[in-house]
Amino acid sequence: MAEQVVRPAGAGHEALFVALACAVIVALAAAVIGARQTPAQRIEVAAHQLDARDDLLAAEQGLYADLRLVPGELADFGDRPPAVTELAEALLPPFVADVGTAWRGDHAWTLIEHGAASAYLGLSAAPEVAGSMLLRLSGPADAGEADIWLNRSPSASPPARLDTEYLVHGGWQQVVTHFDAGATRHRH
């Protein structure tokens, strides 16, 4: 009995077209993804600065968040920066002596004033948990806005001056932060 193999018309072509279509779709998808990709933006900070998000320990991040609120609260205390005890009585962290203080480095807080400049200094009893911190309220012309500094040295001591150059030379690092809108938002 004679057999004749009848191949579907254009079978080879169909397979080729399907393969080509797949390749085109994959290439297009890759091109679109590649075109829309944005590099992860890293905020670079200066050598004397620390990024609050990436460079601080957990306890330091908590203290930093608390300290940032302090300058806005000082209006209730008159013209001069209040003593630490007054801030504690107003329940302002991190000046309140509670476990929130004890477990985050057990800082000893004092108000230091040098001329027109003043700052709240918290010397850490446990630098491995959280370094010593300095909330500089005002200072020489280079200081600008209130800011927060960190020194992880176990031998950190009260700075004799509060200008930026002196603090940097003394091993203090300015803590900075930045805002990032939600990753799936368009208007940043």
Partner: peptide
């Protein structure tokens, strides 16, 4: 560059 404490007045809310 990031801000140190961008939103806080230096000393006094009254100011």
């Amino acid at each position: 560059m990031p801000d140190a404490l961008p939103s806080f007045p230096r000393r006094r809310m009254l100011a």
